[in-house]
């Protein structure tokens, strides 16, 4: 266990502001009658502009970790700070507002089937109360950035897996989120398309400075990431970045 390294990091938290910071983050839940320890204490600080890949076997807690730092779920123990705000102290509506600072991308795209690409991308903006004209402009702009400028009015069923994932990424980028969370973004698409997605993410990170945190099994992505966190059994098994000791 490399807990000591993380303790070192903790000390400079006063000087530096982080996009996400977790302290002794634990999550247990009940599966039937069995208590599952999904996370057993994660201490992590994520800086602006990071490109972090979280790896590890299935059931190691990757998704749980993403859900927690995306304010979708509340920790059983420990703290999550998103943009300096303590998630555990927030109520329903504040939590919902906090989620607007996070861009979520899922393995199965999770697009709304009855809406076309543009409407899907507009949805978070509609939720924020942005007016029609503005959100249409922003959605079209974002779809162009992800390379779907000519697919704006297609429905998810008329798009390939890779295209759907691009729509999902465009949707995640609306409203200038503080960071993107991607849960197995290439897990459900072919390797060629996956490579295109990786290139897109890298471009977003390098050119636009967007902080990216993703969970993946895909070696291609891991290779491109600036930092890698390997999780096993709800703990950080090792990282590849400079933490004093590793």
């Amino acid at each position: 266990m490399k807990d000591t390294n993380l303790d070192l990091l903790k000390n400079d938290s006063i000087e530096k502001s982080y996009v996400v910071e977790t302290q002794d983050l634990k999550k247990t839940y009940l599966m039937g009658k069995v208590i599952v320890h999904a996370l057993r204490g994660i201490d992590l600080k994520i800086e602006e502009g990071d490109f972090i890949a979280i790896t590890g076997p299935s059931g190691c807690g990757k998704s749980t970790f993403l859900n927690l730092i995306g304010a979708l779920d509340k920790p059983s123990n420990g703290k999550v700070y998103i943009d300096g705000a303590d998630v555990s102290t927030l109520k329903g509506n504040q939590l919902a507002n906090l989620r607007r600072k996070v861009g979520f991308v899922f393995q199965f795209f999770n697009l709304i089937q009855k809406l076309n690409a543009r409407k899907n991308v507009e949805l978070p903006l509609a939720i924020m109360g942005v007016n029609n004209k503005k959100r249409r402009k922003e959605a079209e702009e974002l779809l162009r950035i992800v390379g779907l400028g000519d697919r704006i009015n297609h429905r998810p069923t008329e798009l390939s897996g890779g295209e759907q994932q691009r729509v999902a990424i465009a949707r995640a980028l609306t409203g200038n989120p503080r960071f993107l969370l991607l849960d197995e973004p290439t897990g459900n698409i072919d390797s060629k398309t996956a490579q295109e997605i990786v290139t897109l993410l890298k471009k977003l990170n390098e050119e636009k400075g967007i902080t990216i945190i993703l969970a993946t099994h895909d070696q291609n992505i891991t290779n491109e990431a600036k930092k890698i966190i390997h999780l096993i059994d709800g703990r950080i098994e090792h990282t590849n970045f400079e933490r004093g000791v590793n």
Partner: peptide, 16 residues
């Protein structure tokens, strides 16, 4: 259910 999950992950409030 899944659609509701998506809407909530996008920041939609319970009220909405």
């Amino acid at each position: 259910t899944r659609e509701i999950g998506i809407l909530k992950s996008l920041g939609m409030k319970d009220r909405n």
